[in-house]
Amino acid sequence: MVKANPALADLPLRPELVGEEPYGAPQLDVPVCLNVNENPYPPSGAMLADMAQAISSGVYHRYPDREFLRLRTQLADYLGHGLGPANIWAANGSNEVMTHVLGAFGGPGRRMLTFTPTYSMYPEYARNTHTEYVTAPRRVDYTLDASDILLAIARVEPTVVVITTPNNPTGTTTPVTVIAEVLANTDAIVVVDEAYQEFARDPEATALSLLADHGNLVVSRTMSKAFAFAGGRLGYLAAAPAIVDACRIVRLPYHLSAQTQAVASVALRHADEMLARVDDLRATRDELLRRGPQLGFEVVDSDANFVLIGRWADRHAAWQQLLDQGVLVRETGPEGFLRVSAGTPDEMAAFYAALARVDAPRMGE
């Protein structure tokens, strides 16, 4: 008999979930949040008014458009490269997009391959879709080349390969030429996760340019980062129509609410405004890449809106000392590093001031 107020141990939990903790970066009420790679500049009042108008004119006693073709058309227009709505799929964040991909192409007896260090949610996507999660290491500078990837594919025989560029948490990129060589030499579904592509020094150097020639390519994007739309929860992919149809098979009915579709549509209509601060955030990232070494820290060159900085012998102590001063960064990535998101000028000034007061020992001291 199950207790009226059971503990997890009292429930018939799936065995692979025993001992697991829910994913989540710390959500703390502090003055400076530089831990989850958001765009720190909110939409304008006029933009918020447009979103409110779109929501207020919506229909909520009927189910939303299950295929959201209008939104998919807007996303295709935003991406360009000759894409149409049949090439686009979207969901509640790129997290759900990846779950759809693995729900369609992963599963029992199948493997997902990716390259570490990388995004900490990937193993959870695999676990939740009963897909075996296998990794191969990146090079010492956290980059990849085609030989690294193809050797791992030959060894692992995955059905899904995930290449993250710019990579989270390192910010390093994988050239389009490398991705093209991989696609030419595997039948696996190759997901190129470009969540931070708008922040890259060359955002036009994208795997989207390969879609016309490779039916096994999926390019994943999000509106949560550069678009200043993290609260809107809209991730999407571009791929061959057959891959989109596969995602349609495994999605839950009406998975995108009418509200989500409405506000995402407004954001896309005003893409120039939503992306207006991307150049500022690139400059902020580049300043951190310059100042970090000047202050005696090691940094990893980044093409995203964050930078790894270190190395501390006890990075948790450094993280805590920053937090004690009201600055929240992320304790993730290679040993000894902390990941710092690009913030507003005031936020970065607070970060640099707090960093100067951190006395946690660094490696080698």
Rank of each mutant, 00 (worst) to 15 (best):
A240W: 03
A240H: 14
A240T: 11
P241E: 14
P241T: 15
A242G: 06
I243F: 01
V244F: 02
V244R: 02
D245M: 05
A246C: 06
A246D: 07
A246M: 00
C247E: 02
R248C: 03
R248E: 14
I249L: 06
I249P: 00
I249G: 07
V250R: 00
R251K: 15
R251Y: 10
L252D: 14
P253N: 10
P253H: 07
P253R: 06
P253M: 09
Y254I: 08
H255F: 04
H255I: 03
L256M: 15
L256Q: 10
L256A: 14
S257E: 11
S257N: 08
S257K: 04
A258D: 11
Q259I: 06
Q259G: 00
Q259F: 01
T260K: 07
T260A: 15
T260M: 08
Q261N: 04
A262C: 10
V263W: 04
A264T: 14
S265N: 12
S265Q: 11
S265V: 09
S265H: 09
S265T: 15
V266Y: 10
A267Q: 09
A267K: 04
A267M: 08
R269W: 04
A271H: 04
D272M: 02
E273A: 09
L275Y: 14
L275A: 13
A276G: 07
A276K: 11
A276V: 09
V278E: 07
V278R: 10
V278T: 15
V278A: 08
D279A: 15
D279F: 01
D279R: 10
D280T: 13
D280A: 11
L281W: 09
R282V: 11
R282S: 06
R282E: 08
A283R: 07
A283K: 00
A283S: 06
A283G: 03
T284G: 02
T284Q: 03
R285Y: 04
R285G: 08
D286G: 03
D286K: 07
D286Y: 02
D286E: 15
E287H: 13
E287C: 03
L289F: 02
L289N: 06
L289D: 09
L289P: 07
L289T: 04
R290E: 09
R291T: 13
R291Y: 03
G292D: 14
G292Q: 12
G292C: 12
G292N: 13
G292V: 13
P293M: 12
P293T: 15
P293Y: 13
P293S: 15
